[in-house]
Design a protein around this nucleic acid. Sequence first.
DNA 1: CCTGAAAAAACCTTAGG
DNA 2: CCTAAGGTTTTTTCAGG
Lengths: 153, 153
Amino acid sequence: MEHLDSKDMQLLRLLQNDAKLTVKELAKEVNLSPSPVFERVKRLEQEGYIKKYAAILDAEKLNLGFTVYCQLKLKSNDSYLAVEFEREILEIEEVAECYSISGDFDFLLKVHVRDMKQYQNFVFNILGAVPSIGSTHSTFVMAQVKNTHGLMI
Amino acid sequence: MEHLDSKDMQLLRLLQNDAKLTVKELAKEVNLSPSPVFERVKRLEQEGYIKKYAAILDAEKLNLGFTVYCQLKLKSNDSYLAVEFEREILEIEEVAECYSISGDFDFLLKVHVRDMKQYQNFVFNILGAVPSIGSTHSTFVMAQVKNTHGLMI
DNA sequence: CCTGAAAAAACCTTAGG
DNA sequence: CCTAAGGTTTTTTCAGG
């Protein structure tokens, strides 16, 4: 797709907030008939602007309401160790997100667990079993002020 | 709902990965007929285990591929200032997430912008216009290693 | 809680303007 | 981009075990 016009952006915004909107409902919102809306949405999916459709779950209700940002340093700065680390971190289910970052630390993890006890177990037994990790620093989330679950476009 | 059984968990897992799965497809995966699956999903929505269905967009393609974690301190620790800050941060579209955190800083922001130039503008002109903010510290995301877009359940 | 069937709605395609 | 029509699939409900 060459260019997204304002209707495309509006469709993305609407679907980001509610993926269950029907083509008819979308059409009404953007002042088009269903057919072109159907084609636009399919194109947005095809071109990768929409990566997927997901159910957003309630972490609290699923006993994963204890969120921690964990920064960590590797033992050394060789790329072999980084590749090794990245391979291992993908397998750890408590780690929802992992970024390579600037600053004093090498990586930033977003970790979801049930409570502090389980987090202690995570640090000591799960991260502790990853040999590439040198040190960690935990920042605890006390309250969620905002989470748009998406991009403000 | 009193308790989620393994089928419920499996349904949540499946829908988290692909909200477009039909009841029939879900039924096949969990070895039930479509009707009870339909009822289970409706109940999971009703009870709030599923908060919403969302399209996951591609930040890169939408020129929002520059991600920064921005920690900040308020000017003082009175609750009036915190409430003021939280009210203002909700209105800033570049801020996708905001958490109250432990440690040297008060809040952690996840910020999506186009590039470093736009981030500079964000810090100086947008955060700079929020009077409750005392100081900031930016951690730049260099690469995304993992993002499950959801919970590992 | 399950099966199975049937009505209602939505999807998707096609054709023509 | 629009309307319209029709087949296909899905959703949703409902009787019954």
